[in-house]
Amino acid sequence: MKIVVNGETRSTRAKTLAELCTALELADAKIATALNGDFVPADAREARLLAENDRIEIVTPRQGG
């Protein structure tokens, strides 16, 4: 299945958002996620199924002004 993660197209076998985070070795990282523009809380990633062409954002704390 093809999805877009942080603006880059990827192939994945992950079925859920949680599985995708694990596949990207980010499961234990300090991250927050959004799917197709909507925020997905950490405890909802397990239940959130992925579909073809989904757009996922995975973000982390960064410097800001």
């Binding site: 942080n6 980010l26 990282a29 991250i31 927050a32 973000v59 982390t60 704390p61 960064r62 410097q63």
Partner: peptide, 22 residues
């Protein structure tokens, strides 16, 4: 202090390091 959120790379831990600093 103000901070932001930005995309994290696969296997990345930059956010954690910055957060520890803050």
């Amino acid at each position: 202090v103000t901070v932001s959120v930005r995309r994290e790379a696969a296997r990345g831990r930059t956010g954690q390091q910055f957060w520890d600093l803050i």
